[in-house]
Design a protein around this nucleic acid. Structure first.
Lengths: 101, 101
DNA sequence: GCTGTATATTTATATATTTGTATTAATAAA
DNA sequence: TTTATTAATACAAATATATAAATATACAGC
């Protein structure tokens, strides 16, 4: 599938997914969820050392745009990548910096 | 290099590069520049059927954030990918949609 | 029911982005 | 030097986003 074949809607969805990822906190979240990892809001907010409400907000954005999915188990909500594929984006960015150094 | 080893500055730069890409027009531009293609502002504005000034603006953002580089030749300015690697991001997004269908 | 823990939402303020129109700058050719 | 072409910039209006603080909801255990 080439991008020329994208409908306007698909192009906009792709942009909105990328935009969701394009934030230091959210790149870090994606990194922790690489390889099928599932983490709770509390785990992530402690790992990143940011407020719980801020963490939930960022996770909400990623879920809303289709980057993450979540599954509630008792008191906890586990978040994980919706498309394993998406961790390649973070990988790709690290490669760019590898070339620089 | 893992993302944990990123400095805050590198993480912010990665985010700002992704943010630059995260727009329907700019994803389309990246797609046209895949594979080492070099195109002028006019060519891109005609391909995408958008205003010249809008095109120049989007190209400026991509260049400013380190996604594209440019080279002036006479009246024309050719734009091209700074890291061949970056076209993998567009590729990755297309794969996400491939899985959906 | 009530209490504590885990998440989510709302709200307000500040800031940034997108887009078009108009203008300006740079180069090439006549 | 005048003109045509190409590209970049300035400006303004509408829209979107980031952030933190406060509040609300969901669930488990008692």
């Amino acid at each position: 599938m080439k991008i020329e074949d994208f409908t306007v809607e698909q192009l906009e969805q792709a942009a909105s997914m990328l935009k969701a990822i394009a934030h230091p906190v959210r790149i870090s979240i994606l990194n922790y969820l690489d390889g099928g990892n599932k983490l709770t809001v509390t785990e992530i907010h402690q790992l990143l050392n940011i407020e719980q409400s801020t963490t939930s907000h960022h996770l909400g954005i990623l879920k809303d745009k289709g980057v993450l999915a979540s599954k509630r188990e008792g008191k906890n909500t586990y978040y994980f990548l919706k498309h394993p594929n998406l961790s390649k984006i973070v990988e790709c960015m690290t490669n760019c910096f590898k070339q620089d150094s």
